[in-house]
Computed example of a mutant assay.
Amino acid sequence: MELIFDGHNDVLLRLLNNMQDGADPVAEFRDGTDQGHIDGPRARAGGLAGGLCAIYISSGHFELRKPDDNGHYATPLEAPLQRQPSLDIALAMAAIAYRLERAGAWTICRTVADIRAAFEANSFAAVLHMEGCEAIDRELIALETFHAAGLRSLGPVWSRNNIFGHGVPFAYPMSPDTGPGLTEAGFDLVRACNRLGIMIDLSHITEKGFWDVARTTDKPLVATHSNAHSLTPVARNLTDRQLDAIRESRGLVGLNYATTMLRADGQDLVDTPLSDMVRHVDHMVERMGIDCVALGSDFDGATIPAEIGDASGNQKLVAALTAAGYGADDLAKICRENWLRVLGQAWHEA
């Protein structure tokens, strides 16, 4: 079985929502559930050994806009969020992460050595990530605190605007060049993350924001859960020019399992074949090289292909990549080693 380190999941959001309805998040993750995509038993069954676990503040009941007769859709950006309620929710998610660690359900990792040790101990290697920085203040005081608590990755924006920058809508077909990029606060955030050793995630940001980060950061460019725009022209995917910049920085892109970002028609349909996943990997490897492609499932945050189903189905993708000609060394890089290299660079370890 190929061990997998995954670039993005929303399991903390699911655990928080269910906890608010009376469920025990520790029991749900440790013992398993029939909800969502990730828990301990399903992760072990599918070789999912760890990943970036998002602290994400929901805008409420989000729904994609229905396609028109041509199959096109444009979902408006969600409204900006207030900081104080966002901070409360972010702290609640972080608290769940620590409850899971105290119960032995996973290990919160701050270094690559921590991740490898968790692999050896057969403990899920959880890295705290923030998807959209609504919980962070302009002065970046909360950033220092979250970093001390284990935050090691963040995306300045989700698909909405905030004080740090502008996000792209969920829309098909559409360019990612949909609006302004970073604000002055956003430039300060990037520089602070470079100083602290927090990886910057370029998923969800506008193309202008992408280039703003590229000319500011001194670390590899990373999109934790994005695909190729030339194959699936949704606003969330990356153009070939963006992929080229990621290659030049020796960064990486994590393959997003969301069907809207895999299918040529951009539709939200579970009957999306594994071949669509393979063709995105093929394109990104051809454009960037094998060292710049990894996995970023978006488990618990998106509709994924029925053939994968949940975390227990990860080895089906590995099998499909093997059948497509990827060898053992290639698979080790795609499944985990590329992530560990880039995280080490972002965290001042390499």
Rank of each mutant, 00 (worst) to 15 (best):
I198S: 09
V318A: 10
A245K: 10
L274H: 00
G165L: 06
M288A: 10
W339D: 01
F146Q: 00
L87I: 03
E2A: 07
N338Q: 09
F62W: 11
L317Q: 14
S312Y: 09
H348V: 00
N70V: 00
K219C: 03
G186S: 11
V293N: 03
P156T: 09
N162Q: 04
K219R: 15
D10V: 05
H129N: 15
T272H: 09
R191H: 03
L231I: 13
F164E: 03
G32N: 04
D137L: 12
H37Y: 12
G47M: 13
D282H: 05
G251D: 11
E131S: 08
G22L: 04
G51Y: 08
D240L: 04
G327D: 14
C53V: 15
G7C: 03
D31G: 08
G165H: 09
F124R: 10
H283M: 03
L295Q: 04
L269D: 13
D276T: 04
I108Y: 10
M93I: 09
L295I: 15
P220F: 12
L262V: 07
A45R: 12
F62S: 00
V26T: 01
E139Y: 11
L128E: 01
P41T: 01
E286S: 15
A306E: 14
D21S: 14
L295A: 03
C109N: 04
S312R: 06
G40R: 12
G36W: 06
A346K: 02
A294C: 07
Y56A: 06
R279N: 11
A258Q: 05
V342T: 07
L317S: 11
D88M: 12
L100N: 11
H8A: 08
G46D: 13
P169H: 06
H147N: 11
I4R: 04
D268C: 09
H129S: 13
A126R: 10
F29S: 01
L317D: 09
F299N: 07
R160A: 14
H283L: 07
A103S: 12
G46S: 10
M288V: 11
M19H: 02
M199Y: 00
H8W: 04
R287K: 14
R99C: 08
L48E: 02
Y98A: 06
A149D: 08
A90E: 10
F62V: 04
